[in-house]
Amino acid sequence: MAQKSISDILVKCADVGVEIGNHKILSSVSVEVCRGDRIALLGPSGCGKSTLLNVLAGLLPASEGTLNSTLKPGDVSIVFQEPSLLPWKTVAENVQLLLSLNSTAQLQSDVRQKLRDVLTRVGLWERRGAFPDELSGGMKMRVALARALLMSPRLLLLDEPFSALDDFTREKLQDDLLQLYRSSELSYVLVTHNMEEAALLAERILVFSPQGKIVAELRVSDFSGSESIRRDSKEVSDIRSAIRSLWQATTREATHA
């Protein structure tokens, strides 16, 4: 794994806490996201993973701690659990929606080529004229991914994007994401509650406690072979076991406390 320098840092938060009403959602969370990072935020529902994603995106202010970001508006894009497409727009119109609404005329000129590249990368160029209700769940999610990629983000935030999909589609999209990562200068932070998904897609896994704290950071070695081989590998299985043991210890501690 290559050494990261200070100039590689995209966003860094130190001792960040988030309180909404009287409810503490995040507590003393420190994360550094660098160029080329693949990070998974892993934990059960309601532990503050998506809240941290919103803080990193600048959509939610932290109640405490510091947040330093080198990212400018447009450098971050996000993909949600639901594809969140506009049903009255075609695949192509949905993908270029953000760009067409906030760019200048100069930017508009190269949109077509960019659109073709992105839609080809996600395998939807042939379906560019289709409407969302004519697509499968996996295709819709790929449209959402293409919409985010068209903005050429330096950091892609993925908020449980595959959790509502069936196993076959999910595995295909996980493979697609890794291929996209390898073929471009993408950095991403993935929110997931699936241990195998975290082990497969991330090089750093941050495990959350139910109280909104990071209880462990696991490093995963880089893997250049095919994703299907990796999925069944002993390494993924070992990481899953390590997370499970860690999780059991954390919940035991929380029960005794």
Partner: peptide, 27 residues
């Protein structure tokens, strides 16, 4: 209206007026 799209529009600096016209009204 879809709160995720509202967040996405805000993240990409799309003006509230454009968001209202192109997304909130049709929705």
């Amino acid at each position: 209206t879809d709160p995720n799209l509202q967040r996405l529009f805000r993240l990409h600096g799309i003006s509230p007026w454009k968001s209202f016209l192109h997304f909130e009204v049709p929705s």
